[in-house]
Computed example of a mutant assay.
Amino acid sequence: MQNDRNATFSKFGGPDTLIADYEHWCVLARPKQVTLGAMVLISNSDHEHFPDLPAAAFTELQAVTSDIEHALKSLVSPEKVNYLMLMMVDPHVHFHVLPRYSEPRAFSGETFPDAGWPGPPDLASGISGESAVLAVCDALKSVWPAR
């Protein structure tokens, strides 16, 4: 776990929304749950260009994405998982991780449709609010693989 974080980490609610921490990456619950289990996978570095990351970050990315998909399978049972690297507003290397599904998912008294299915995700849709995001964060932590 790193003590120094970039602004993208803070923008997405870190450390409150932190699900898992690795040497080169961290995973946070996305403040706007476009779909149930939406996360942000953020580089722990200040790099703004994907190819500038150290080789070890690319190696570790395989383990991190494996953990992400394992946790999502347990919580959401998505039909697909989209990894979107947009980096237009928040410049540090990060991915929006969106589980995708054709039928709405229910969680903690809320219904989470996938408004964009089967096309691109509808990033303007979704559920936000601190209590919903923290509940999703806690649920993902509870199914996160131990390393």
Rank of each mutant, 00 (worst) to 15 (best):
P78L: 04
R105N: 06
E103H: 05
K80P: 02
D52N: 13
S102W: 00
S128V: 01
I127C: 05
P99H: 10
N82H: 13
A115T: 15
A63H: 12
S45I: 04
H70I: 09
H92W: 02
T65W: 02
F112K: 06
G116A: 11
V34D: 07
M85N: 14
T111D: 04
A55S: 14
F50D: 02
I68F: 00
H70Y: 15
T65G: 03
A55D: 13
P121C: 02
P104H: 12
F112A: 03
G119P: 01
M87K: 08
P104K: 04
K80R: 14
P51I: 06
L41Q: 07
E60F: 00
A63V: 08
D114G: 00
L41F: 15
P113Q: 08
S102V: 08
I42L: 15
L53R: 10
G37V: 02
T59F: 02
L72K: 04
L123F: 15
F58R: 00
K80E: 13
W117H: 08
A57C: 06
S45H: 14
L53A: 05
A57Y: 12
H47T: 07
L53N: 06
M87P: 03
L72A: 04
A55R: 06
Y101I: 03
P118E: 12
P51R: 02
G109M: 05
E79S: 12
E110I: 07
V64I: 14
L41P: 11
A63M: 05
K80S: 11
A56G: 14
P104M: 08
K80A: 10
A115D: 15
T35Y: 13
G116I: 09
L98A: 03
N82P: 07
P113T: 06
Q33V: 11
K73A: 15
I127E: 01
L86C: 08
A55T: 14
A63R: 11
P54G: 02
V97G: 01
K32I: 14
E103F: 02
D67M: 03
S74D: 12
P113Y: 11
H92T: 10
P120C: 05
H92M: 03
M87V: 13
P104D: 12
A115L: 07
E79Y: 01
P51N: 08
P91R: 12
A115Y: 10
A56H: 05
P51Y: 08
H92R: 01
N44R: 14
G37S: 07
D67Y: 03
K73G: 15
G116S: 09
Y83A: 05
L53E: 11
G129S: 09
A71R: 00
Q33H: 04
Y83E: 03
E48Y: 00
M39I: 07
V89Q: 14
G37D: 01
I68H: 04
S77K: 11
Q62M: 02
R100A: 06
P91Q: 10
L98R: 01
E48M: 11
L36P: 13
H94Y: 06
P121S: 09
N82T: 13
G126S: 09
K80H: 12
K32W: 06
S43H: 08
P91N: 07
V40H: 03
